[in-house]
Nucleic acid binder design. Structure first.
Ligand code: MN
Ligand code: MN
Ligand code: ZN
Ligand code: ZN
Lengths: 144, 144
DNA sequence: TGTATAATTGAGAATGAGATTCAATTGCAA
DNA sequence: TTGCAATTGAATCTCATTCTCAATTATACA
């Protein structure tokens, strides 16, 4: 079993929840994508393949994935909540362009250090963290 | 004229927009608050004082305040978009407790440095930036 | 291998934050 | 003043997300 499935199952069982086929499909779809996506994008992907997973189930499952630590909300790109899988990825920050919607990811080792330090200082148990900058990318600055 | 009003006016005029009495009221209310607030909270405050500012105008003005650099979106506390004024404040991060909703603010000089460095590296012009951690506060960890 | 039971699902309805529309009003520059 | 574009509020609309509930399923155990 893939490591992320094990983790998800362990998380679910620990809460008295079940690893259903729908939840497995969602998990697989989420880890097949290497970009930012929203609930609707998952729904459309399933529909295109005639796999039946309802919107309701997708909306119910995403928070479970977040709580399990496999996925996090990404900086909102528009009206919908966006997600990305994080298991197996270094934590990274995002720059999102107000002009064209482009998302630039960047890694920075210091970010992780700061996060740890601050959480220790306040006895805070982190689940999800985010470093985001909104602004204008190189191209969009020219157009202004 | 207060410095923030000058800045807002300059921003508006620069875009061919006007500093109306409604926009002034919103600006004042936003700078009278030293916490995180949402559009509805502003609306209720005006209503309590029988100052007429419509929700539509509030929703239209908040993005202007953000774009002017006086205000930023804060980590979403619930369903609504939250804001805070930042003019005159050091940039800071937030920890928000999933259990009780408590928000802990923290300052960290390194954050600002990272932001500058990353933006320079990519030629990105920042408007707004955010460092947020969701998780469980000390008290809520005990309850788990 | 059946059965009990609690968890889960999907379809559709409900919710509610925020955006939009448009006629009436206002700020400002000439 | 006057003209005109920007602005406003009330109502309406939109649409992402949540909720409801009857039907279905996973799992533990007899
Ligand atoms: Mn990312
Ligand atoms: Mn704050
Ligand atoms: Zn851009
Ligand atoms: Zn708490």
């Amino acid at each position: 079993m893939k490591k992320e499935k094990e983790i998800f199952k362990k998380y679910l069982v620990g809460k008295g929840l079940k690893l259903t086929s729908e939840r497995e499909l969602i998990l697989e779809e989420v880890f097949s994508r290497h970009d930012h996506f929203d609930a609707e994008a998952l729904f459309q992907a399933f529909r295109a393949r005639s796999e039946n997973v309802s919107r309701a189930t997708i909306y119910r499952t995403l928070p479970l994935l977040v709580e399990s630590g496999l996925v996090q909300e990404a900086l909102r790109c528009g009206e919908r909540v966006c997600y990305e899988h994080i298991y197996g990825h270094k934590s990274h920050g995002h720059m999102i362009c107000i002009g064209c919607g482009k998302i630039i990811e960047f890694e920075n080792k210091a970010l992780e250090k700061i996060r740890k330090k601050v959480c220790e200082e306040y006895g805070f148990k982190p689940v999800e963290f985010r470093f985001g900058i909104k602004g204008y990318c190189k191209d969009c600055q020219k157009k202004l």
